[in-house]
Design a protein around this nucleic acid. Structure first.
Lengths: 211, 211
DNA sequence: TGTAAACTACACTGCGCAGTTTACTTTTTG
DNA sequence: CAAAAAGTAAACTGCGCAGTGTAGTTTACA
């Protein structure tokens, strides 16, 4: 019978858990199946009973991790709440995601592979792209409501995210810089919001050139 | 005697040229010394006579390429010329660099390695960082001249570059997107300049909310 | 409790690659 | 031209790894 779960199920979970760890730590090519097997407390043969090849194992994991990370990015527009407040909320949510240790290691894992062999990760990367569309629909709604004046919402959305990511994503990826402190995060967000509203806010919403 | 150049010299150049090609195309670990030797029309042994190991070969090349790419980024401030014009020039120069095929493949080569084994490329990456300091000194000078009002020039500089790179660097790296067309480049630059001046320009220089 | 399915240890194939050795040829230079 | 310096081809060492084959053990379940 099943004490808690079927053995097969438990083994499968062990494998995935171990593979995530190893792939995150060392990337695709530097991680060996023997190592994953050891970490998972599982015979190598068992891995191959669950996943036909190293590639397939990697792709399954990349896809799963990516789904898990990007599911949270819908930003409903609310005409009652001031623009600044809403933008702040969006930026904070984005920042919260970017500064997660899991996000960083996952992103690193996927991108490092995508640079060398894009086929392996094309699907996953495409998925990532879409996930940043949340801001765009918010911008469209705010524009329709007359609070913003944006001719190209996609460009505007990317600009807004770029103002955050340049401090809270790329340095952590390439430079192994630590995530910015809470106070620095506030500054980054404030500045991004001001820049955005200074440029795209309708006349009434623009004010204070605080930096 | 020397017909045109000493043999050793020619061989060395062949090796470097071939290695650059191969590393750019496939990255560090996926490139073999045998392959480089073949491409260079050189015996593998000869490579080892010039470079003690694959690592050393890679690092030499990475360093050289990086120096070559980043040497051009000083932007002298001129109080006589309108801010917008100067900023445009800076952006265009930056854009010109980013859209070079050599730049993209070099950057890809270095970053893909840096994600997996930072030691190999730390020096090179650091170098890259510095190269983006050109704008910062320009911003400082414009601020001193009273034309800009910037409390944190480094942040402002990074923001300005981010507004360009988000369209003309990251998509090419991760997505294999083609470099933006000339017309798109103009739009990107215009928008970045406007955003920057809207936010940091002294009262007099701010105008037109063009998008 | 008996059988099928899943897991295990471990040896093994086959491959690619970094780096070396060797025996030999070409180029440079005094 | 002769010796020294540099290059060459090809075989070889040693290693790590993806993936397989096997014979035997454990778990699930009827």
């Amino acid at each position: 019978m099943c004490a808690e779960k079927k053995l097969t199920e438990r083994k499968r979970e062990n494998i995935i858990e171990a593979a995530v760890m190893e792939f995150r730590a060392s990337g695709f090519s530097a991680t060996s199946m023997d190592r994953i097997a050891a970490t998972a407390n599982v015979s190598k043969r068992t891995i191959y009973n669950h996943f036909a090849s190293k590639q397939i194992l990697f792709q399954s994991i990349a896809q799963a991790l990516c789904d898990q990370l990007t599911q949270v990015s819908e930003y409903p527009y609310d005409p009652e709440i001031p623009l600044r407040t809403q933008l702040h909320a969006i930026a904070e949510q984005e920042m919260a995601m970017l500064t997660t240790a899991e996000f960083i290691s996952t992103f690193k894992m996927i991108t490092s592979e995508s640079l060398v062999s894009p086929e392996l990760t094309r699907a996953t990367i495409d998925n990532f792209q879409e996930s940043s569309l949340g801001v765009v629909t918010w911008i469209k709604q705010a524009t329709k409501d007359g609070k913003l004046s944006v001719s190209d919402p996609i460009r505007a959305g990317k600009q807004f995210l770029a103002l955050i990511e340049t401090f809270a994503l790329w340095p952590q990826l390439y430079d192994f810089k630590p995530v910015p402190k809470k106070s620095a995060q506030k500054t980054i967000i404030n500045s991004a919001v001001e820049m955005f509203i200074n440029t795209y806010g309708s006349k009434t919403s623009r004010k204070k050139t605080s930096q």
